[in-house]
């Protein structure tokens, strides 16, 4: 099939950037979307031009590296699919596509379709963990976990941290991402001890990074490639409200022998 691509080209973080049009005369329907861009890039290099920079690594839909907007949708038109798993049979001959980076204040563009998502790491660092040093764990079967809780925790833990939720949100909110971790750990007995602290600290970091507020538009859930649910945000809000009242940072004056 024949496709026309309009791709955002931006040399670096300080460049203004612009859309450049490329014709793809011969696209195989069995190619993945990124393989099509590989073909374009090989062609550009042969012509002495710079290839289009896009992030990718595993190409199996699990590492969360890839992701950009195709016609205004993060990861493109197929539901539940990262762009590396999107195949060209989802498009038709003669189609014109617009490829742009994920846009958010907290995701500055580094080059072309590549953005900086390190804000996500800082949100996790703020409390998205169970504080258990290596070596001090009890037997894996010592604490039974209801199958349903384990399954629901797994549903939330399936988040790949790609940023599609932020890119799809009119407020550029990272609530789905943050709440997925809060829900994952909050649904398990191991996550209870730090549940309040986690909610307070992660939400504070979320705001610190410059993401917008959640107004329950639900775009994030609709466009999440891993099907992470909006109900996680409700869990986060509940945990946060409770913790905002009950949680206090520990008193620094404690000490002793």
């Amino acid at each position: 099939m024949k496709l026309t691509l309009n791709i955002w080209r931006q040399k670096g973080p300080n460049d203004a950037g612009r859309i450049v049009k490329y014709e793809m005369p011969n696209v195989d329907e069995h190619m993945s979307f990124l393989e099509m861009l590989d073909v374009l890039n090989e062609d550009l290099i042969h012509k002495g031009e710079e290839p289009v920079t896009f992030e990718h690594d595993c190409r199996e839909g699990i590492c969360g590296c890839c992701g950009f907007m195709i016609n205004g949708l993060p990861h493109g038109p197929q539901r539940g699919t990262t762009v590396c798993q999107l195949h060209m049979r989802q498009f038709h001959d003669g189609e014109e596509l617009w490829l742009e980076p994920f846009r958010a204040k907290a995701f500055p563009v580094l080059k072309d379709l590549m953005v900086d998502r390190s804000a996500f790491d800082r949100i996790i660092a703020a409390g998205g963990y169970v504080s258990v040093n290596t070596g001090c764990a009890v037997d894996g079967n010592a604490i039974p976990i209801e199958k349903q809780s384990a399954e629901m925790a797994m549903d939330a833990a399936a988040c790949i941290g790609c940023g599609a939720c932020v890119a799809s949100c009119p407020n550029a909110s990272a609530s789905l991402f943050t709440s997925a971790k809060i829900a994952h750990l909050g649904l398990l007995p191991q996550g209870q001890a730090e549940r309040d602290r986690r909610a307070v600290r992660m939400v504070a970091q979320l705001m610190e990074e410059g993401f917008g507020y959640c107004t329950n538009t639900g775009e994030c859930e609709a466009l999440c490639p891993k099907g992470v649910k909006l109900e996680n945000i409700a869990r986060m809000n509940r945990d946060y409200l409770k913790a905002a009242i009950l949680y206090r940072e520990e008193n620094a004056s404690a000490g002793g022998a």
């Binding site: 963990y129 169970v130 258990v132 290596t134 070596g135 001090c136 764990a137 009890v138 037997d139 894996g140 079967n141 604490i143 039974p144 976990i145 209801e146 199958k147 384990a150 399954e151 925790a153 797994m154 833990a157 994952h184 750990l185 398990l188 191991q190 996550g191």
Partner: peptide, 22 residues
């Protein structure tokens, strides 16, 4: 054997049986 214990303690959501065991 210690690996499984450590990962469970971290909150890794391993598959479980109805009785709550791994």
């Amino acid at each position: 054997v210690s690996i499984i214990d450590q990962c469970v303690a971290q909150g890794v959501p391993f598959a479980r049986e109805y009785g709550g065991v791994l």
